[in-house]
Amino acid sequence: MGNSRVGTIAAGRARAGGLRAVAIALMACVAVGFMATAFAQVQGRIVGTLQRHDPKQHRIVLSQDARTGSELGQGAPINLYYDEAKAAADRATRPKLQPGDRLLLNTVTTGNRIEATSVRRLPDTTPGQGWGQYLHGTIGEIVPRTGVLLIDQDQSRIRNRIGFDAQTQVFALDGSPMRFDQLKAGDEVDLAFRMQGRLRTATRIVLLPPPGG
């Protein structure tokens, strides 16, 4: 009886120890999973206006569009870093970037660090274009009768009323011209505009391909 009881207690302790070991292992797996998630690389893309380029720090400083009341402006600058070896390989075929250029950058984000994996100057870049005269977003509606585009601004999703006229030019990402009637609701676009009275009127519109396209 005594040996049987001792054996039962020992077996119970062994089972409890085994359960604790399993629980600890599970907790370790969960912790590793959280760490992996925290440092996972997230692919994306960013559109904005180049403020400056810091070659020594391998950094591009970009301003994205921001909404300030009823007006458009530039948001706080963001830093994007890049691999110098990859950038050097692309430099021969890429136009030299200048402050004020409108850029599309494919990115990889790890933690708080954003790295640009590719950069393209958009064909709506307009020399001397003032801040607050670009808009990146999705076409919500085209109203040909009144010559108006309704653009849902990227990130804020605020709907903007943008006019268009016979002088409005449309381009594909590679700079090739398109017809205005090739645009449709749901298209992601970037555009430069001018003020015509109180209405913002598009001067150049760039159709952006779907992410990853």
Rank of each mutant, 00 (worst) to 15 (best):
Leu72Cys: 07
Ala166His: 11
Pro55Asp: 13
Ile60Thr: 02
Phe180Cys: 06
Gly147Asn: 11
Lys56Cys: 09
Val6Asp: 12
Leu149Met: 05
Ala10Leu: 12
Ile142Trp: 02
Leu72Pro: 02
Gly17Lys: 05
Val189Thr: 05
Gly128Ser: 12
Asp124Ile: 07
Glu115Asp: 15
Gly147Trp: 04
Val47Ser: 00
Leu103Val: 15
Leu135Phe: 15
Asn112Phe: 07
Ile9Asn: 01
Ala116Ser: 09
Glu84Asp: 08
Asn112Cys: 01
Arg94Ser: 11
Thr37Gln: 14
Leu72Tyr: 04
Ile46Asp: 01
Arg159Ser: 15
Ala28Tyr: 05
Pro209Trp: 08
Leu199Arg: 11
Val108Gly: 07
Gln98Met: 09
Gly137His: 02
Trp131Pro: 02
Ala23His: 09
Ala92Tyr: 10
Asp174Gly: 03
Gly18Lys: 06
Val108Thr: 11
Glu141Asn: 03
Leu135Glu: 00
Asp190Cys: 13
Asp124Asn: 15
Ala40Asn: 10
Val206Asp: 05
Gln155Arg: 13
Pro123Leu: 00
Ala166Leu: 13
Thr125His: 01
Ala25Lys: 06
Leu191Gly: 01
Leu135Gly: 00
Arg13Gly: 06
Gly175Asp: 07
Ala192Tyr: 04
Gln43Met: 09
Thr125Lys: 04
Asp165Cys: 06
Arg113Gln: 15
Gln167Ala: 10
Ala87Tyr: 04
Gln153Lys: 09
Ala76Phe: 12
Thr126Ser: 10
Ala116Met: 01
Arg91Phe: 06
Gly18Leu: 03
Phe34His: 14
Leu207Gln: 02
Ala87Thr: 11
